[in-house]
Design a protein around this nucleic acid. Structure first.
Lengths: 362, 362
DNA sequence: CTGTTAGCGCATTCAT
DNA sequence: ATGAATGCGCTAACAG
C-alpha cells in the first residue's frame, strides 16, 4: 500500500541506497541522478518513513520543548521562539529529510509529567530537549531529573535549559540560560521602597519552585537592605502569600493580604498574571491604583503595557532567550563559557506604582 | 552500549516476545512472568526504542496538535486541554509502552509551515493530528490540505479539527469541532445596537481566515438586520480594519478608525487581545470606556474579566473543546453525528459596553 | 501462556 | 558515483 524507498528507487531506476543519499543530501550524487530521484519522489508522493529512518540511523529529528504551562504566554513566547529557530521553514512539498520536528510538551508543572515526557522523548531518541521555566526544588525530583538527563545525554541528546537554574551537579546539560530573577525581584522592590513604601505585600508563586524562591529572595533582600521586616521562613511571613502563577491566585491572595494587613500600600505579584488578579482585588476593595495601593508584576508580558494603569514590572527577554535556546539545541550556537549564561531582567516603571498616600507631594 | 529488549529478555530468562507483550500490556502474560520482566527492565534501566517499535508496528504513539500561535492563550488553552486528555499521567518511572506522546506544533499561521508539520507528522506515522483554530481560505492551500489530510487518513492517522470549519469536500477528517463564530459575532453586535450604538468600528483579524470572516459576517449580519450600513466588500468598509490577532493591531487599527470616523461610539475587536489594544488607543485619545466609547472583544480569555472596565466579549469554551478534541483524537469519544459539532458561543456582557453618550439616560 | 520466525523501511558499510 | 548486502530493535503472526 504505502510507497517505500524501494518503490522510488525502482521508478528512478537506481538503487535504494542512492535514493537514501539524495534524500539525506549528505553524500555526493550526480546532479542528473538526483533530478531523476526527486521526480520519482514527487510522482509517487513519497514520504520518508521516520521510524525506519531513525532506527537505522540511531537518531531522530525530534526536538522536545518542555513547558510548565502552555496556556501561559510566558512559556508560549519562549517555546514559539525556540521552535522558529529549530523548525526549518519548509515549503510543505519538501520531500527530503533533515528537517527537525520541534515539538512542545506541556508538563502542567507536574514533576511526574516532566519525567514522563523525558522518558517519552528518550524513547523517541530525540535529538535535543529544551527545558523551560522554573524547576521544582525537591531533592528527590532533582536527583531523578539529573539521572534521567544523564541518560539522555549519554544517548546523544542535546539538553538545554531556558529560564531554569542549573542542576546541582550536572554536566549532562549542554547549556543553561537562566534568568536573573533574584536581581529583578530586588530591583523591583527597591523601586517601591524608594517611592516610600514600607508595608509591601508579596503574592508569591508555588512553593519549592526555583523561580518562586529567586524572585522572593530578591524581594526580601531589598526589604532587609532597607531595614524593613522580611522574615525568611515562608508561610510565616504575614505579608507573603503563596499560590499558583495565575490571576486567580493573585486575586485571592491579595484579598487575604488586605485582610491581614489593611495598611499595605503596595502589592507585588510573582508574575504579571498574578498582578492582574491583585489589581482586581485591590479595586474591589474600593482602593485606587496607584493612589491608594501600588501594584507590580514580573515578566512584562504583552498585555502588561495595556492594563490601566500600565503595569510596573520586570522585563524578561523571553523571545530572545527562547530563540537562543533553540539555536543551542540545534548546535548552531556555541554554548556560553562555563555552559551557563545569566539573562538580565530589566525594571519597567509604569503607572501602577507611585508614592504611598502619606508621602505624596501635594 | 544501549540496552535492548533482548538484554531484558535474557536477564528475565524469557523470550523477547514476552518482554514486548509485558511492555505493551495488550496480551495475557502470567503475573509472575510479568514481575520478573519488569524487574529486569528496572534493573537495566531499559527504555523502549520508539523508532524500532513504530517501524515494526507500523504505527507510532505520537499525536500532533497544530496551533496558529502558541504564544496566544486561545491556542494554549485548547492545546493544553487536548494534551491532558491524550498524555497518560504517567509516574515517570513507567517503563511500559502505550503512552501517547502529545505534542504541539506552532505553525505561526503560515500555511507552508502547516503543511510542513503535517508532512513531518506523516513521516513519523503519527497516530492522530489535531488542527486547532481558523484556517486559511485560499483555495490552493485548501486543496493541498485536503490532499495531505487524505494521505494521512489513508495511513491510519486520525484527524480532528478543533475550532476550525470543515474542509469543502473532505471525509478524511474523523471529527470536526467548530465554533459558532458567526452567531457569537452577531449577538455581540446586536447587543451594541440594542444599547443604541449606530456607528460601530470593527477591528477584524487577518484576511482570508475562516475565523476572521465568520466573526465579521456575524457583525455585518447584525448591522444589516438593524438597517445599518455594512458594506460587504472587505477593505472598502470605512468602519472595518484588518490586522493580526494581537494587541498592537487593535491599538493601531483603532487609532485609524477614530481618525476616519470620529463619531464612532463603539469598537469591536476580533478577539480579546485586539480589544485590549483598542482600549489603549481609545484612552489615549482622551476618551473614556464605556462612557465615550464602548469596547468589546471575543473569546473571553482569562485576563478579560480583569481589565478595567471588565471586557464585554463572547465566551468560547476553549478548554472543553480542546479536551473533547483530545478524546476524539484518542478514539475515546465517539464523533458527533455527521462528524461535525458546532460549539456555542456565549455573549458575556460586562462593564466595557454601555449606551452611547446621546442615548444615556440622565 | 510462551517461544520461534520473519520481516518492518531505511542507512550504511563494503565493493565496484 | 553507484550498487549489493547487512542489521538497526522491535512486533506480529504462527506454533506449541
Amino acid at each position: 500500500m504505502t510507497v517505500t524507498l524501494a518503490d522510488v528507487a525502482a521508478r528512478a531506476r537506481v538503487s535504494p541506497a542512492t535514493v537514501s543519499r539524495v534524500l539525506n543530501g549528505n553524500y555526493p550524487v550526480a546532479a542528473t541522478t538526483r533530478e531523476r530521484v526527486l521526480r520519482a519522489v514527487d510522482d509517487l508522493d513519497y514520504v520518508l518513513n521516520g521510524p525506519a529512518s531513525s532506527l537505522a540511523a540511531a537518531t531522530s529529528d525530534l526536538v522536545g520543548i518542555l513547558v510548565n504551562d502552555i496556556a501561559d504566554p510566558f512559556f508560549g513566547i519562549m517555546a514559539g521562539a525556540a521552535q522558529s529557530e529549530i523548525g526549518v521553514p519548509g515549503d510543505g512539498t519538501s520531500r527530503a529529510g533533515g528537517e527537525k520536528l520541534a515539538v512542545v510538551c506541556n508538563t502542567g508543572g507536574s514533576p511526574e509529567r516532566e519525567l514522563t515526557y523525558l522518558t517519552l522523548l528518550q524513547r523517541q531518541r530525540a535529538a535535543a530537549v529544551v527545558l523551560t521555566g522554573g524547576a521544582l526544588e525537591d531533592p528527590a525530583h532533582q536527583a531523578a531529573m539529573a539521572a534521567k538527563l544523564g541518560r539522555l545525554a549519554d544517548a546523544g541528546t542535546r539538553i538545554v535549559f531556558c529560564g531554569r537554574p542549573p542542576l546541582p551537579e550536572n554536566d549532562a546539560v549542554t547549556a543553561v540560560l537562566t534568568f536573573d530573577n533574584r536581581g529583578g525581584g530586588r530591583r523591583l522592590t527597591e523601586h517601591l521602597i524608594s517611592l516610600g513604601h514600607r508595608r509591601i505585600g508579596y503574592v508569591a508563586g508555588p512553593l519549592e519552585r526555583t523561580t518562586t524562591r529567586d524572585r522572593l529572595e530578591g524581594h526580601r533582600a531589598a526589604m532587609r537592605a532597607a531595614g524593613l521586616p522580611a522574615e525568611g521562613s515562608d508561610g510565616d511571613d504575614r505579608l507573603t502569600v503563596h499560590g499558583p502563577y495565575d490571576r486567580r491566585s493573585g486575586y485571592e491572595a491579595t484579598l487575604e493580604l488586605l485582610r491581614r494587613e489593611p495598611g499595605v500600600t503596595a502589592v507585588v505579584g510573582a508574575n504579571d498574571s498574578v498582578a492582574l488578579g491583585a489589581s482586581a482585588a485591590v479595586r474591589e476593595q474600593g482602593l485606587r491604583i496607584p493612589e491608594d495601593v501600588s501594584v507590580a508584576g514580573f515578566d512584562d508580558l504583552p498585555f502588561s503595557v495595556d492594563t490601566v494603569p500600565a503595569l510596573t514590572t520586570v522585563r524578561l527577554p523571553l523571545y530572545e532567550a527562547g530563540a537562543r535556546a533553540g539555536r543551542l539545541a540545534m548546535g548552531t550556537e556555541t554554548p556560553p563559557p562555563g555552559g551557563i549564561a545569566t539573562i538580565a531582567a530589566e525594571l519597567m516603571v509604569r503607572g501602577s506604582t507611585a508614592p504611598p498616600r502619606g508621602d505624596r507631594p501635594l
